[in-house]
């Protein structure tokens, strides 16, 4: 499903973000293995491993969303629209993609505000005392990229480059 060879700056950026998310996920897996090993050997797990795993997998998922959008891996049901001609279907799909872009923009905006408020309130994580605001802020960036990817996909659908 992932032989995505799309070119262009948007596709490249989205893919880079997804790969960064994947790298974070791999790092999270490595950290967990290390923590399990330490727990087994010295009965002292890595301090705050739960927090780091939640943070790592959360950031990875946020990095993945734009790629999923651009590759259009969302689950949709086409049984009721099989009789429609392909161009019409493409227009419908483009319409929903545009809605998704709008939703993602709203979410990016709200997460941006959430990040600013978290920064002001000085909230940190429980064990390591890491500030939370920047992670929420990265969430805003992730959804902004989703919006960009969705707009890009809308254009491609309307130009008939996908079906």
């Amino acid at each position: 499903m992932s032989e995505g060879a799309e070119r262009g700056p948007v596709a490249t950026a989205v893919r880079a973000l997804a790969l960064a998310g994947g790298a974070v996920l791999l790092a999270t897996a490595l950290l967990t293995c290390f923590s399990v090993g330490r727990r087994w050997a010295t009965s002292q797990p890595v301090q705050g491993d739960f927090e780091l795993v939640s943070l790592g997998s959360g950031l990875a998922v946020l990095g993945f969303l734009a790629h999923g959008t651009l590759r259009r891996t969302n689950i949709l049901v086409d049984s009721f629209t099989t009789w429609l001609p392909r161009p019409v279907v493409a227009v419908i799909d483009a319409g929903w993609m545009l809605v998704w872009a709008a939703v993602a923009l709203v979410l990016a905006w709200r997460l941006g505000i959430g990040a600013a408020e978290t920064l002001r309130s000085g909230t940190t994580t429980m064990v390591l005392g890491l500030p939370t605001w920047w992670a929420v802020g990265l969430g805003a960036c992730g959804f902004a990229m989703v919006a960009l990817a969705a707009l890009h996909a809308t254009g491609r659908l309307l130009r008939g480059e996908e079906g």
Binding site: T42, S43, F50, M126
Partner: peptide, 26 residues
């Protein structure tokens, strides 16, 4: 010493660490 204990809030975690336990947050 080395006892892995789940703790409720940050200060209690620090206290358990000072007592030699391995506090785990969850």
């Amino acid at each position: 010493q080395g006892l892995k204990l789940r703790f409720p809030t940050r200060q209690t975690g620090e206290a358990l660490r000072a007592l030699g336990a391995a506090p785990v947050g969850m």
